[in-house]
């Protein structure tokens, strides 16, 4: 906004809304419930249930409210720019989050585990502890790692393909080929679900067959931390893509106004890039 001409454009400031404070209340109940649950207090699950129900109710209505506003055309280019920037900064905060988790991985691999092994030649934390990565489990319990060129490699292909299909859907939307957009989104959601299915299978295998669990030392913990948080983000991405798919089927979005679609596709690409890094640094190297 570098012009100095007076503007008569009005920015859309929404009317007072009950949803934000209800969402905070929902999160409060979920938070309290989880704390009570892990401390084996009986009220815990009920608090989680109450919070989750309220959470779902609020998300439906708040997003419904926003979608309604969007369809009634109150968002012009000025508001649109705010949403775009907001989404960009949200994704940047997610980048910071995953950067932190990767920093944990590199710290353990390159600094703390080698350092612990060198403290004193006559001292080991537990039998079988070496400076190697993956580190042996605590108390020498054996486990094996997930092989990169099986399911993880297939999952990489799946996510890369889903990046292509979501871009194809975007092309369909921009050139007013609604059926292409819908098919592209369906494929993307499908690929996301298949990815999650494989990931769930991999976790199940890790627990039952490989002996790789959250408690198998710092390697297992870090493996599940990184892949688990990524899986959580894929889950959220699939939910968001499904909402966009339904909106597409309902006939929302125009070739030049479809910010919600773009925001979700940015998010999806971000999750994709995180997976590539995971594949290289967690599974492969």
């Amino acid at each position: 906004m570098s012009t100095t001409t007076p503007t008569k454009v009005h920015y859309y400031v929404p009317r007072p809304s009950p949803y934000p404070v209800m969402l905070s209340l929902a999160l409060f109940f979920v938070a309290m419930g989880v704390v009570l649950k892990v401390n084996a207090l009986r009220a815990g699950p009920w608090s989680i249930l109450l919070g989750a129900a309220l959470l779902i109710y609020v998300l439906f209505h708040w997003f419904g409210n926003v979608i309604g506003e969007s369809e009634s055309g109150v968002y012009k280019s000025w508001e649109d720019r705010s949403f775009r920037m907001g989404m960009v900064w949200f994704i940047l905060s997610e980048v910071a989050f995953f950067a932190g988790l990767f920093a944990v991985l590199f710290y353990e691999r390159n600094i703390s585990v080698p350092h612990l092994a060198q403290v004193d030649p006559g001292f080991t934390l537990y039998p079988g502890f070496t400076a190697a990565w993956p580190s042996a489990g605590p108390h020498g319990k054996p486990f094996s790692v997930v092989q990169p060129w099986g399911i993880p490699a297939i999952n990489t292909l799946i996510l890369l393909t889903s990046g292509v299909t979501v871009t194809w859907a975007h092309w369909g939307l921009k050139t007013a080929r609604r059926s292409a957009a819908i098919i592209g989104l369906m494929l993307t959601v499908g690929l996301g679900v298949v990815f999650l299915g494989f990931q769930a299978h991999e976790f199940y295998e890790a627990y039952t067959r490989l002996g790789l669990t959250l408690s198998s030392g710092v390697y297992g913990a870090t493996f599940f931390l990184l892949t688990g948080f990524h899986g959580l983000h894929v889950t959220v991405g699939v939910i968001m893509l499904s909402v966009i798919l339904m909106r597409c089927i309902k006939g929302h979005f125009t070739p030049d106004q479809h910010f919600a679609f773009e925001a979700v596709s940015w998010y999806w690409h971000f999750v994709d890039v995180v997976w590539l890094l995971l594949f290289v640094f967690v599974y492969w190297m």
Binding site: S112, S215, V218, G220
Partner: peptide, 19 residues
Amino acid sequence: DRHFGTHFFSAAGGGDPVL
């Protein structure tokens, strides 16, 4: 670490409190 048996901050599982 507190509830799910991980060892991020515990040397007993190869983790590191300094982390």
